[in-house]
Amino acid sequence: MTVDYLARRIGMFVAVVFVATSLNFFMPRFTGQDPIATRLELLAAEGVTTRAEDYAALIETYNAKFGLDKPLVIQYLNYLSSAVRFDFGESITKYPTRVGELINQAMPWSIGLLVTSTLLAFVVGTLGGAVLAWQHGPKAAFELILPPFFLLAAVPYYLLGLILIWLLAFQAKILPLGGGYAPTTLPDWSDLGFLWEVFKHSLLPALSIVLASIGFWALGMRSMMITMQGEDYMLQAEAKGLTKTRAFLRYAVRNAVLPQTTALALTLPHVVSGAILVERIFGYPGVGRVLYEAITGFDYFVIQGVVYIIVLAIAFAMLVIDVIYPLLDPRISYSSS
């Protein structure tokens, strides 16, 4: 029954989150790298020197401060309880900024950029792929337009990003080189000028993601559509004298879009992690950059926070797919396991 089904899915969700979160705790600790030492090395690199006897004391203070002197089990339990409370303490590298604050600041940037560009690429790519595979459609136009996108799909989007920067920002100077907004402006979300600024800055990263992924969606959809056209119900649709539009939309696309939807649902949660490379190249202030800096600085707590959010988002997306899919595909019923 439906309640039973939901209960099982939610149980699954909790299990997935628990396992992934635990891995998230243990994995960085098993690399054998010491975050405090890394932090001090960074400080040293910035010219802050420490005398040898102070060095040991300093490490001890830091370890105590971040709870890293406690036995692993205790650390683990603390970590679990902080995960439940969404409180990941303070960043090691950006002390005393709290991890939650870092993530909160970066999240809207990533979600805004990536959700928009992912959805745009999905819609355009899926439609294009569908039309391309449909022998009755306005094929000629798409046959000219889409193949370049198949090519672009093979180019990593960060490379595409670099090319775009060079072309549009460096050579043509139409768009800004990077950042979320001009360094001279003060962020004010109620100011139209600032919004325009944000939009202009997001165009290049968005373009590099959209251009690189339209081909991916189009290829997937096209091959699904070709498979669908071999199906007997497509022949039957034609034998029933259906209009081409109806056969296309309600028979071919309707079926071919099912696996596309699954792929989309699994792609979207990655939005919260940001597109690390794109954000890095464009100096975009999103979660990807936070994560990148945390990894290079070996900032346990920030890594844990970001990864935890990613895990939650993915598990949640899977839960949503499981709940929604039976509505899209009657063959998947709530009663089957």
Binding site: Y233, L235, A237, L258, L328
Partner: peptide, 13 residues
């Protein structure tokens, strides 16, 4: 037309 493979001649959704 009533086809050979009416098994799959119906739109599953």
């Amino acid at each position: 037309l009533v086809t050979q493979s009416a098994m799959n001649a119906l739109n599953p959704v």
